[in-house]
Amino acid sequence: YSTEQNEIVDLPACDSWNPGSLQLVSKFKNPSSSCSVDVSAVWWERAGAKEPCIITACEDVVSLWKPLDTLQWEKVHTWHFTEVPVLQIVPVHDVYNLICVALGNLEIREIRALLCSSGDENEKQVLLKSGNIKAVLGLTKRRLVSSIGTFCSQQVQVLTFAEDGGSKDEQLLMPPDETILTFAEVQGMQDALLGTTTVNNIVIWNLRTGQLLKKVHIDDSYQASICHRAYSEMGLLFVVLSHPCAKESQAFGSPMFQLLVINPKTAQSLGVLLCCLPEGQAGRFLEGDVKDHIAAAVLTSGTIAVWDLLLGHCTAVLPPVSGQNWSLVKWSDTDSHLLAGQKDGNIFIYRY
């Protein structure tokens, strides 16, 4: 960041965040012997009623938990994985009773759909993709985008599920000739898709036609940026990035999230906000999630921190609970709750 940009970065004073803005709603433990890797909230239909359920993923098992009246959770389905470990849950929006998972060792090798057969409620898994998968994201309108391969041999595919999660349709997007790191949908523009690449470009596609519309080179200060969320407003694109590989700087400490504004017509961009840790907090970005204008990150210190991107500062800090570091953080898609997980399978649900 240049000196001019320093002036618009809002570093909060120590007392400007409120730890009380996160209230514990419920918690449960997934008694798996393997390491907990992801958590997500999904709508699931049982006996004709749609319920907000929690999906937990350990390396060798994925479980679906349904809510009971007493703020407790009951495990209702499990899918087992004996050959390739689970890396992440990939929620697909607007389709009920289906969740996707990415499997692999460090890099994604398979994407599978997890579902239940309607007659006997038995758990099933279907292999959707296999290969050298670099990025995957579930989109609105029952779509799943993935990129397979690198550089010139890359294929970018959009798979559309039927309403019942069954038969599907596939479309190719024009590859950008540079390896894709992450995808992000543009909120409110269901035909626009963004991707970040290994050479610090943000690429923009038209999902309806498969066209590659623009490449936007962003600041080289941070490599391997992850795009979490994008919004289009008044002819500009607002993009929320995180920088897991960023080095600490004296001026800002470790940057956690950055809000960029892009003019898609001219491919010019500008940093408008850099979210850093409040005074007294240490650590680097481990993983994070953004919902609307609220961003949450797990730090290497084992703490979770939350930023309001409209206010421009950190609003809550959640230190490790019961002496155990946090390792997962996700916003719920079914309500305004924050899901926080620990490696041993403990899941805590907070109201923000």
Partner: peptide, 23 residues
């Protein structure tokens, strides 16, 4: 820095880029 540095802005950027980009 201001949005003036970003050049001319178009509210219909998505449609315009789609009509300009190769099919």
């Amino acid at each position: 820095c201001s949005t003036a540095d970003l050049g001319p802005i178009s509210l219909n950027w998505f449609e315009e880029l789609s009509s300009e980009a190769p099919p």
